[in-house]
Design a protein around this nucleic acid. Structure first.
Ligand SMILES: NC(=O)c1ccc[n+]([C@@H]2O[C@H](COP(=O)([O-])OP(=O)(O)OC[C@H]3O[C@@H](n4cnc5c(N)ncnc54)[C@H](O)[C@@H]3O)[C@@H](O)[C@H]2O)c1
Ligand SMILES: NC(=O)c1ccc[n+]([C@@H]2O[C@H](COP(=O)([O-])OP(=O)(O)OC[C@H]3O[C@@H](n4cnc5c(N)ncnc54)[C@H](O)[C@@H]3O)[C@@H](O)[C@H]2O)c1
Lengths: 231, 231
DNA sequence: CCCACTTTGTGCGTGCTTTCACAAGCACGT
DNA sequence: ACGTGCTTGTGAAAGCACGCACAAAGTGGG
């Protein structure tokens, strides 16, 4: 028995690569706006803030889209990355929790440009419901299932207080949404097959503080080396 | 020639560990609020959403703060992690670009709780300057150097449009700020020794879209295996 | 037609991360 | 005083990710 047909090309793009593709895409679109037709890995890498070998290896996972001696055709690469990321289709997004942050996201224009469309805003507060934010009516959270179905929502964004986030996530999942972006500072528990990403400003600040403290320590670390370590 | 002295024990906490410490800290504080006195690595790991061996190895980088057979004393661990992250001191934060997002951040109460204090708000728009947001006067960006000095700002947050972000970053650096949190969708260029972290919602959505598309593909992939691959 | 030059795609070594699995250590009951 | 049971801390192995360095492949000039 043949162990396996040579597996033409297992569709396995490393997670680290996936996370960088959007960065490349943005750099490429900026080049495109400036009318650039082709770009070398060196130049694109520099625009994206990464090592050029890394960039080439990343792109090689999508296929062999460069021309040796020349570089990459900007427009073609934009298309290939967009397709790989799924940006050639339209994604309907629902935001739950229309407070400070939810409103900022709703009013932000930068999403529509890349295949993401804010399709619904939901909140639990009766005061909030019915208000118009960014040309959308805020609906009551009880309509979540209806809204998801009728608008074809496939990505859910959670900007409620931490205490409500798990409940909202569960309702999203039950309604069939399996991609969630969470801004609330809690670990969400979801079934396998559901993809949760979190954005946590507080964590970012704490990481910055750690490094800042280390830099500061370094300056006066002579004392520590001299013997203060014997606590 | 010896390639390198054996490096006794550089105070090296792995970057991946540093990024998780804030998550552990939050889980611990939640336990503390509920009056829990000690916690096992298994339970804490589960609350933080990680593997318990990973959690133990992470904590072991800070020292040996657990008790075999019992677990970790919650309060003591909170203190140790806070100290390691530099949260026992007070960090003054300046936000530049008081638009949708900048305002949301300024109004957010969740920072003060962990040693971060929003010390100044800055904007370039004359309409904005002088307004009061979250009990702070918005100052003109031209005062950045003054404000950094007088308020002792050590962390800069950038929420301006992409086009202005690099300029603001450079001014931050020149004013002596070497920790920057950037929300604008651009790659910032800064000298060595300056720590930049970025938060990019658009990238997060694109990563979600990639995985969502892959899941959808999988469902109907039979066709692909059957021969559609011969592009 | 060939040569010099440029740039891609990738094999390979290195170091970081994760996970397993278990000896060592501590508390507590007897 | 000692054994039992639980949990930590950490070797060791496996898996990823990164970046160097170079052969392969294309361009363009003569
Ligand atoms: N504002 C920020 O800059 C910021 C920064 C970091 C993190 N966060 C996090 O983002 C989340 C939102 O922050 P915010 O400042 O916008 O808070 P907010 O209080 O201004 O808004 C929260 C909104 O969620 C609604 N809500 C509460 N429970 C709900 C439920 N069960 N279903 C639907 N809606 C519900 C509330 O009515 C309110 O409108 C919080 O978890 C916060 O910790 C915010
Ligand atoms: N709002 C969101 O939800 C969201 C989401 C993702 C990314 N972002 C990014 O965050 C940034 C801010 O978004 P926003 O929606 O708040 O934009 P905004 O236009 O509402 O606010 C930008 C503010 O920056 C000020 N500004 C412009 N140039 C400046 C300068 N040189 N110095 C100081 N201030 C200056 C403007 O006066 C304005 O008040 C943008 O880069 C955006 O791409 C925002």
């Amino acid at each position: 028995m043949i162990s396996r047909p040579p597996r033409p090309r297992e569709r396995g793009i490393p997670e680290a690569t996936v996370a960088r593709l959007p960065v490349y895409l943005r750099a490429l679109q900026s080049l495109q706006d400036r009318g650039t037709l082709t770009v070398s890995s060196e130049d694109l890498a520099s625009a994206a803030g990464v090592n050029s070998a890394k960039l080439r290896k990343d792109l090689s996972h999508l296929g062999s889209y460069g021309t040796r001696g020349v570089g990459y055709e900007v427009q073609y690469l934009v298309y290939q990355i967009s397709r790989e990321l799924g940006l050639t289709q339209d994604w309907a997004v629902a935001i739950v929790g229309i407070g400070n942050l939810g409103r900022a996201l709703a009013n932000y224009g930068g999403f529509g440009t890349r295949g993401f469309r804010i399709a619904a805003l939901l909140d639990a507060d009766p005061e909030m419901v019915g208000q118009s934010v960014a040309s959308l009516d805020v609906r009551h959270i009880d309509n979540l299932e209806d809204v998801v179905r009728s608008k074809g929502v496939s990505i859910g964004v959670i900007t409620t207080p931490a205490a409500s986030a798990q409940g909202v996530a569960t309702r999203f999942v039950e309604a069939g949404v399996s991609s969630i972006l969470n801004f609330a500072p809690v670990v969400l528990n979801v079934p396998d097959g559901v993809d949760v990403r979190k954005v946590d400003l507080s964590i970012e600040l704490q990481i910055l503080a750690f490094h800042a403290q280390r830099r500061a320590d370094g300056d006066g670390r002579a004392a520590e080396r001299a013997g203060l370590e014997l606590t």
